[in-house]
Write a protein that binds this DNA or RNA. Structure first.
Length: 723
RNA sequence: GCACCCUUAGUUUAGUGGUAGAACGUCGCAUUCACAUUGCGAAGAUCGUAGGUUCGAUCCCUACAGGGUGCACCA
């Protein structure tokens, strides 16, 4: 029995840390330690596995995490009480670019760059940073009450995990799915790395659309009274790298010009006019200058028409030596000068103001510069098909349903995945190059003892690391030990925000199928986004973010969880702080109702519902017991359908209005009457206990604290009691 | 541009083919009896606009307006 002071209002602050410690000490977060339940003789047989969306080591708890993890915790606790062997698998993601950027910023304050330190020292430094700060988010999740099995927690750069990542690379390579290629890719000049399309942000920017005349190389072809073809561009500085002009084959204006040549203004280089279906007849003049080196679409067009890839911008976002007089200049500086020169020479037909979207680096916000470079790619065709099939066949359910469409669209139009990053923090590619024969390489987890090619050199590892998502895609099995894999794979559930549906969920699905032969989970639950009260995105940098820890510290984790769940009805949530107030009040209501029952019906015994019904003496007794039974069924149904808000609102209604307002008030009279006194005690006690159980997944702390005080339970936890 | 979603009391929202339910806020009354972090009660919504289907629509259809999201990026 506990020794809580019920004469005072519920005090989450002291209670929560105490209760959480008790849970931790019990070891029951670990499914292998779970006790049997009275109604369930023998061991728990069925599994329920929830995967935690890996928080970045750089992360601190935000509302999104609170939402993810409260939902996961509800399912975890519910199924644990239901008698299943429940594993909620936590871990942290090394978050390559995010973490590297964080440490680089720290270094910058000290006036050094990562290059000053060198790779080895820098990586050491990041590890040091990780040891110091990497655990913060885990501690915060504990404050929320997350009942994950921390003993199984893994970090995506842990030795065992890393081995699986590299094996996956080797496997894909051996299957012929990984290849090395020279392509124009999205490049962040600040971070100095390639990025996948999913790692870009788009920012609207005011710019101009310049119409430039490209004179025909041979006036003999001067038909339609034109001596030039006009192209429209927002990036005139890239024209130095133009290797063609493209028009739509259906565009009658240009039919006669296809196959002819134009002279590039400023340099006089001759480039061909080609026809390509990707060209929009209605945009600009319908003629596109093709710069394969500095535009991803142009690169594809270039490939189709055998156009040269001529780069004029370097990896730091500056004009390179091929840019002649502009070499060394930043691109926007070169742009100004080039526009001026075109104007002076009479090539500039007009300039229009133009609003366009500029891609930026999701992490550092720098403008993306497409540049050609050698990267590693994973062929997506077959993998995407398997991921598509998994959902179409119903093996994996994505909820709410409309997100299936997003998933299908992405997979149906997928490009090969650029998996290499020019970073230092991450899983370095298991690729070994011959030092003498430059492009010769071999793929293996361990460094080869001797070079296969020249037989003499010590082979050198490729400098690139893998995209963070390549490793997190393996989480459902790489997060488990060998023996756990047999026991706990595949799992059941993952809950996350919509922006990682394709970034993460889709990739987990095909990885699971590829490496384990089975889909990793049955349900993907995509929850709404928590917005500010006026519907704006919460963002740290805009100062619109709300820190859930403030609520936890001030009102308690239960009140915070209540508020999150109460509002999570499927759509995006315009965060209303009033819900936290409501949660806090509700905690107190539960607390005081419990106080009443403890004082008036101590140890009234544990009755089974059936025997309870026989105990009912009054109409009120019957009514509350019937309503209790109904509420229990509804709660189960709602939880199993992931309708957490409805479950909670329904419970709230039952507890506050049916139990407290009606039955508890009535019980005062019944307790005063000798005839009904004993039966009332039993009903009061039983209804409270059942309510505590139902409320526990939502508000674990108050309910556990009360449970520890109102029943002599031999050291048992509400957390593991029979539902 | 294409696709999907949303628009209900002061605020945040639930909901149904037959004249809307909650939370917070507001107002009134109560209160030594679990709880003032309370109880009871009240006020407060012609359910974005305009059409249509229907005996009847907030809920179905169409258009429009406003807000959001995903995809594609358009050079």
């Amino acid at each position: 029995m506990g020794n809580a002071d019920f004469s005072k209002p519920y005090d989450p602050k002291n209670t929560e840390s105490k209760i959480y410690k008790m849970w931790l000490d019990s070891g029951y977060f670990n499914p292998d330690n779970l006790p049997a339940q009275a109604g369930l003789p023998g061991k728990r047989k069925k599994n329920y596995v929830v995967y935690m969306p890996l928080p970045n080591v750089t992360g601190t708890l935000h509302m999104g995490h609170a939402l993810d993890n409260t939902g996961s915790d509800i399912l975890t606790r519910y199924h644990r009480m239901k008698g299943l062997r429940v594993l909620w698998l936590p871990g942290t993601d090394h978050a390559g670019i995010a973490t590297q950027y964080k440490v680089e910023k720290e270094l910058k304050k000290e006036g050094v760059s990562r290059f000053d330190l060198g790779r080895e020292k820098f990586v050491e430094r990041v590890w040091k940073w990780k040891e110091e700060y990497g655990g913060i988010i885990i501690e915060q999740l504990k404050k929320l009450g997350a009942s994950a099995d921390w003993s199984r927690s893994r970090f995506t750069l842990d030795e065992a995990y890393a081995k699986d990542v590299l094996s996956a690379f080797v496997h894909y390579f051996e299957q012929g799915l990984i290849y090395r290629g020279f392509r124009t890719v999205n490049w962040c000049p600040r971070c100095g790395t390639s990025l996948s399309e999913l790692e870009l942000d788009h920012k609207e920017e005011k710019g101009s659309l310049w119409y430039i005349q490209y004179p025909l190389a041979d006036t003999q072809y001067n038909i339609q009274n034109t001596q030039y073809i006009v192209v429209a561009t927002t990036r005139p500085e890239t024209m130095l790298g133009d290797t063609g002009v493209a028009v739509n084959p259906k565009d009658k204006r240009y039919t006669a010009l296809v196959g002819k040549k134009v002279k590039l203004p400023l340099t006089g280089r001759e480039i061909p006019i080609v026809a390509d279906v990707k060209i929009d007849l209605n945009f600009g003049t319908g003629a596109l200058k093709v710069t394969p080196a500095h535009d991803v679409l142009d690169f594809e067009i270039g490939q189709r028409h055998n156009l040269e890839t001529l780069s004029v911008i370097n990896e730091r976002g500056k004009m390179n030596e091929r840019a002649g007089e502009y070499a060394g200049m930043k691109t926007d500086g070169a742009r100004t000068l080039i526009v001026q020169k075109l104007k002076d020479l009479g090539f500039l037909e007009k300039e229009e103001p133009y609003l366009h979207n500029v891609s930026t680096c999701e992490r550092c916000g720098h403008t993306i510069e497409p540049i050609p470079s050698t990267q590693w790619f994973l062929k997506m065709e077959t993998l995407a098909k398997s991921a598509l099939k998994a959902v179409k066949s119903g093996k994996v359910k994505i909820q709410p349903k409309n997100f299936q469409k997003v998933y299908f669209d992405w997979l149906a139009n997928i490009h090969d995945w650029t998996i290499s990053r020019q970073l230092w923090w991450g899983h370095q590619l298991p690729v070994w190059f011959c030092k003498n024969e430059k492009d010769k390489f071999t793929v293996s987890i361990k460094k080869p003892t001797a070079c296969f090619f020249c037989k003499s050199c010590p082979m050198e590892q490729a400098p690139d690391v893998l995209d963070t998502w390549f490793s997190s895609a393996l989480w459902p099995f790489a997060g488990l030990s060998e023996s756990d894999r047999k026991k706990y794979y595949p799992g059941n559930f993952v809950s996350n925000a919509r922006e990682i549906l394709n970034l993460w969920d889709a990739r987990m699905i095909f990885s699971g199928l590829e490496f384990m032969g089975k889909v990793p989970f049955k349900d993907v639950f995509v929850h709404g986004t928590i917005l500010t009260k006026d519907g704006k995105r919460m963002s740290k940098s805009l100062g619109t973010g709300i820190d859930p820890l403030n609520y936890i510290n001030q009102y308690g984790a239960d009140a915070t969880r209540f508020a999150v769940v109460w509002q999570a009805n499927g759509q995006d949530i315009r965060w209303d702080e009033a819900a936290v107030t409501a949660g806090r009040k509700f905690c107190n209501k539960i607390w005081n109702a419990a106080r009443f029952v403890i004082e008036n019906a101590p140890q009234a015994g544990a009755e089974k519902p059936r025997s309870l019904a026989r105990k009912a003496e009054t109409v009120a007794d019957t009514r509350i017991l019937r309503k209790l039974g109904k509420t229990k069924k509804q709660t189960e149904r709602y939880i199993e359908e992931f309708e957490f808000a409805k479950a909670l609102q329904n419970l709230y209604d039952f507890f506050w209005h049916d139990f407290c307002d009606v039955y508890l008030e009535m019980s005062k009279k019944q307790l005063a009457d000798k005839k009904t006194k004993e039966s009332t005690k039993v009903v009061l006690f039983a209804a409270l206990e059942a309510s505590l159980k139902m409320l526990h997944p939502f508000m674990p702390f108050v309910t556990e604290e009360i449970y520890q005080n109102f029943r002599d339970n031999g050291g048992k936890f509400l957390m593991t009691e029979e539902w």
